[in-house]
Simulated scan of single mutants.
Amino acid sequence: MAGLDATGTQSTPDIDRGGPDFSRMIEALRLVQDRTTGAAPPHEVVTEATRALEAIAASMEPFTVPEREQITGRRLDLPGRGQALVPAFHVDEWDDEHATGRFTLSRYYLGGNGAAHGGVIPLLFDEVLGRLANTGRPTARTAYLNVNFRRITRLGVELRLHAKLEREEGRKRYLTAAIHDGDQVTADAEGLFVALLPGQP
């Protein structure tokens, strides 16, 4: 799926960037986040894991690049654009006016008592609505995002998200979205995205 990158330039997914194992690496990172969140390891395991993570971080440091050259967040062919911050969103339909997809919230996103942390819901809405607001259009930034929490959003079940461009008024783009757990809406949102003026970062 083509789209606009962070600089406002039309981009096409480059599945070769990062090589064939880039997607595996991101999924491994997600798994580390989940397993760490749900674990209560003994001291010696914590020490061993810390050394391993520090070694991985050191191995990546020499390859640090400017934002426009990084791979993470730009692989539009991968769930979550190839980054581990936002839950992996699997696109079913996407055009310049609507988007639908599926996601499952893992242990990493736990708030308490089996419910998703309240902060991950706006994060996911902003990710999907922001991408939709910019699909086929010049870059816009989030002006506001209003989220209604209708009921608990559960972990470990497949959820669906539907997003829609409602209208455009000059530089303003109004979008809505909802998260569905079966036939129930767990949260919905309305966002305003404003197109950048020439020269705005």
Rank of each mutant, 00 (worst) to 15 (best):
G3N: 09
G8E: 05
T12Q: 14
D14Q: 03
D14W: 01
I15R: 11
R17N: 01
P20V: 11
F22L: 01
F22G: 00
S23E: 03
S23A: 09
R24S: 06
R24K: 06
I26W: 01
E27N: 12
A28W: 08
A28T: 09
Q33I: 00
Q33R: 12
R35N: 03
P42N: 06
R51D: 10
R51P: 00
A55K: 08
A58T: 08
M60H: 13
M60R: 13
M60L: 15
E61M: 11
V65K: 13
E67T: 04
R68C: 07
E69Q: 13
T72H: 11
R75G: 02
L76V: 04
D77L: 04
D77G: 09
P79A: 09
A84R: 07
A84Q: 12
L85S: 02
L85F: 03
V86T: 13
V86E: 04
F89R: 00
H90C: 06
V91R: 12
W94L: 15
D96R: 09
F103A: 06
R107T: 11
R107K: 10
Y109K: 00
L110R: 05
A115W: 01
A116N: 01
V120D: 10
I121D: 00
P122H: 04
P122E: 01
F125H: 03
D126C: 11
V128I: 13
L129K: 03
L129S: 05
G130H: 15
G130R: 09
N134C: 14
T135M: 12
R137F: 08
P138E: 08
A140H: 05
Y144K: 15
F149P: 01
R150S: 09
R150C: 10
T153N: 00
G156Y: 07
V157P: 10
L161K: 02
L161N: 03
H162N: 03
H162D: 06
A163I: 05
K164W: 06
E168R: 15
E169R: 13
E169H: 04
K172G: 11
R173D: 02
R173T: 06
L175G: 14
T176D: 04
A177D: 10
D181I: 03
G182W: 11
Q184V: 02
E190N: 09
E190Y: 11
F193T: 02
V194K: 12
V194G: 05
L196V: 03
